[in-house]
Deep mutational scan, measured.
Amino acid sequence: AEEIWQQSVIGDYLARFKNDRVKALKAMEMTWNNMEKKEKLMWIKKAAED
């Protein structure tokens, strides 16, 4: 689920960090860890469908 979420937001994060992939990935990891369980559930369901 986290991978699907990352694939959907990586472009936004890379743009925000001027294509600094290391910073973008760290920010994504922090965002994922801070997400509410119900927000993650949507992505977990999406992962299950694929």
Rank of each mutant, 00 (worst) to 15 (best):
K40H: 04
K26Q: 11
F17G: 01
E39I: 06
L41W: 10
T31F: 10
M30L: 12
W5R: 01
M30T: 12
K37T: 15
L41N: 06
E36F: 03
A15Y: 08
M30Y: 10
M42V: 14
V9Q: 03
T31N: 08
Q7P: 01
N33L: 12
E3A: 11
K26F: 07
E29Y: 08
L41P: 01
Q6L: 07
K26L: 09
D20N: 08
A47T: 05
N34M: 12
Q6P: 01
L25G: 07
M28Q: 00
D50A: 11
G11N: 11
K40V: 04
A48V: 12
A27H: 11
V22W: 07
I4W: 07
I4R: 08
I10S: 05
A1S: 05
M42L: 14
A1P: 14
S8R: 04
W43E: 02
K46C: 07
V22F: 09
L25D: 04
G11W: 08
K18Y: 11
E36V: 03
I4F: 15
E29T: 11
D20K: 01
A27L: 06
N34Y: 07
V9P: 00
K45L: 14
D20R: 02
A15S: 12
Y13H: 02
K18L: 12
W43Q: 03
A48S: 14
I10G: 03
M28N: 00
Y13E: 01
E49Y: 07
A27V: 06
K45M: 14
K45W: 10
A1L: 02
A15Q: 12
M28D: 00
V22C: 12
D20E: 06
M35D: 00
A1M: 09
Q7R: 14
E29K: 10
K37P: 15
D50W: 11
K18I: 05
D12V: 12
K23R: 13
E2N: 09
I44D: 05
V22R: 06
V9T: 03
M30N: 11
E29D: 08
E3Q: 11
D20C: 04
K38E: 15
Q7V: 11
A24Q: 01
M28C: 02
G11Y: 12
M35N: 01
K23F: 04
E49T: 07
T31Y: 14
A15K: 11
I44S: 07
E39A: 04
N19D: 14
N33H: 09
E49A: 10
E49V: 07
S8M: 09
I44C: 05
E3I: 13
M28T: 02
K18S: 14
N19R: 04
L14C: 06
A48Y: 11
W43T: 02
M30H: 13
V9G: 01
K40L: 05
T31Q: 08
K45N: 12
W32N: 00
K23P: 03
I4D: 03
I10M: 11
N33S: 07
I4H: 08
E39C: 10
K26T: 06
F17P: 00
Q7G: 05
L41Y: 11
I4T: 08
A47F: 12
M28A: 03
L41D: 15
Q6Y: 10
K37I: 15
I10E: 05
K40M: 04
F17H: 10
L14P: 00
I4S: 09
I44P: 02
K46H: 07
S8I: 09
E29N: 10
N33C: 12
W5E: 00
K38F: 13
M30W: 14
R16Y: 12
A1F: 04
A15E: 15
V22N: 07
M42R: 08
Q7N: 06
V9R: 03
K26M: 10
E49G: 12
K26R: 07
Q6S: 09
T31D: 12
D20Q: 03
I10Q: 05
I10T: 04
M30P: 01
K18C: 15
D12Y: 07
D50S: 13
I4K: 15
A24T: 03
N33P: 02
A15L: 12
E49F: 07
L25A: 08
E29C: 06
E49M: 14
K23W: 03
S8W: 12
W32G: 00
S8Q: 09
M28G: 00
N19K: 04
